[in-house]
């Protein structure tokens, strides 16, 4: 039964797609987060490849290949490069003003770590740029929120699914859930690179929703969106290194200093 097999494969890929988003919430090491994102790119390409669109199969396959190359290959590569640049880059601004600020921040974090030392956590080493140290919402609560957001996505998508129930539209809530989780990552994570991943999760979710709802997107539309995302990531990468140079860290809370008061 190719129909059932096809449906099961699609469900599997969508499950992987959602799971990758949840894994992003779960992990702390930025390099692992990027890896999880690459996995999600593969899953998204799989979704595109598995759809049986109205128009030519080859165009959809081309779109799938393009998505795979961009989201599982190029974007993670760019992010990894930015990560190494930030983590191993030269000390910011010759270590004067910015270095002093980051030093005092490190001191205060170390102090709080010292107080919490009895519980076995060592926050002092978390100050490194390669980790998402202290998300605004901790990991357990994040995972719980992801579950709630997924529920919400399923509840919202019910009428949409009821319009035309096929295997593809039944998987539609997954796309919505990834959109919400991506937004959640944006709201709660502090590191600039984690923000970039959150933004890309959001975009992945939108793309998946478009695929699942419309059974495929024309090549030209997908090309436009992809170039947009690529540009955004390039700009954000530059922004990240600049932040590191200006503030001595990539915590976006430092941007508060830019507010005009």
């Amino acid at each position: 039964m190719p129909g059932t097999l096809h449906a099961q494969l699609l469900d599997l890929v969508c499950g992987a797609f959602l799971l990758a988003a949840v894994v992003v919430l779960w992990l702390r090491q930025l390099a692992s987060i990027v890896r999880a994102f690459a996995l999600q790119g593969v899953a998204l390409a799989g979704i595109a490849a598995l759809l049986d669109g109205h128009d030519s199969r080859w165009e959809l396959l081309a779109v799938a290949v393009g998505i795979g190359l961009l989201r599982a290959g190029l974007l993670p590569l760019l992010m990894r490069r930015a990560l190494t640049a930030v983590a191993t880059g030269p000390a910011p601004l010759a270590g004067d003003a910015g270095g002093g600020a980051s030093g005092s921040e490190a001191g205060s974090t170390a102090g709080s770590g010292g107080r919490a030392g009895g519980t076995g956590h060592h926050y002092a080493e978390d100050v490194s740029e390669a980790r998402e140290t202290q998300p605004l919402v901790n990991v357990a609560a994040s995972l719980l929120s992801a579950a709630l957001l997924t529920l919400l996505a399923y509840a919202v998508a019910r009428p949409l699914v009821a319009l035309h129930p096929t295997p593809a539209t039944r998987a539609l809530p997954v796309g919505l859930a990834v959109v919400l989780i991506g937004f959640f990552v944006l709201v709660t994570r502090r590191r600039a690179l984690a923000q970039v991943v959150g933004f890309l999760l959001l975009d992945n979710g939108i793309t998946a929703t478009a695929f699942l709802a419309a059974s495929g997107v024309p090549l030209i539309v997908e090309l436009g969106v992809s170039f947009d995302v690529l540009l955004a990531v390039l700009v954000l990468g530059i922004l990240t290194t600049r932040m590191r140079a200006a503030f001595g860290g990539t915590g976006i809370d430092d941007l508060r200093e830019l507010c005009d008061r």
Partner: peptide, 18 residues
């Protein structure tokens, strides 16, 4: 000036709407 707050506005608005 907190970026998280700004993003949070959007997120809360979206979730409330949904």
């Amino acid at each position: 000036g907190s970026v998280h707050l700004y993003l949070g506005y959007g997120f809360c608005g979206l979730v409330a709407l949904l």
